[in-house]
Design a protein around this nucleic acid. Structure first.
Lengths: 108, 108
DNA sequence: CTACTATATCGTAAAATTACGATGAATGTT
DNA sequence: AACATTCATCGTAATTTTACGATATAGTAG
């Protein structure tokens, strides 16, 4: 079916999954790494940096914007993208908590 | 195409993306949360816990096993799943570093 | 050995993802 | 006004994902 039954899971589970999913592609990892590294963040620079076409990069940017991890401000003819601090920190906290929750347990 | 051009990205980018992708579904978040919470970890219990069919749960377990986040040990007729500490900690470190790398920057 | 239980795998269908070129919209330049 | 630049969106194709029922496999019990 290809459709996840999101209604059946908790809000937290869905939010965590959405954030992880947004980062679940090497191009999108590359984009956030690039945005973190460079202070400047014009869309065209990202396109130059990635081995993908302009339209594909635009699509990946849209995915990241959808979950709020990045935001874009129009600056004349171009668009300045950057990490959205609030959402980034929220994701950091949520994902961090998920990983912290695990304590070594000698299971099977 | 639906095929990511993994060859074009760094090993780290691909590994991070694969880990994030594995966690990019609410059912798989629910599975790891459940494995963390309960000391016991029989597959059937996970199926009972989730609003999905046995075969679908098995598929999700396979995805998590593929990236190594969990491992399954055969115990008689059933299978005991649990977090793989090594991979879990590696993922925690890698994802943690990605999030730590960002420092507040007054961009656009 | 037969029957039962637990899990994986197969087959399949619907939907989503990834990717690209082409087109469109908005802004800036000449 | 005409044109170039920047980016988003549309149309489209291949592939992957999600999901389920049915079937296969392996172990346990009787």
């Amino acid at each position: 079916m290809g459709l996840s039954k999101t209604e059946e899971f908790t809000k937290t589970q869905n939010e965590l999954a959405a954030l992880a999913k947004a980062l679940g592609h090497p191009a999108r990892i590359a984009i956030v790494q690039y945005l973190i590294k460079t202070r400047v963040c014009v869309c065209g620079d990202i396109v130059d940096e990635l081995p993908l076409s302009q339209s594909t990069v635009s699509q990946h940017l849209k995915e990241l914007k959808k979950v709020g991890l990045i935001k874009g401000n129009i600056e004349g003819p171009s668009v300045c993208y950057c990490i959205d601090e609030k959402v980034w920190n929220r994701a950091k906290k949520m994902i961090g908590e998920l990983f912290e929750a695990y304590q070594t347990q000698n299971c099977c």
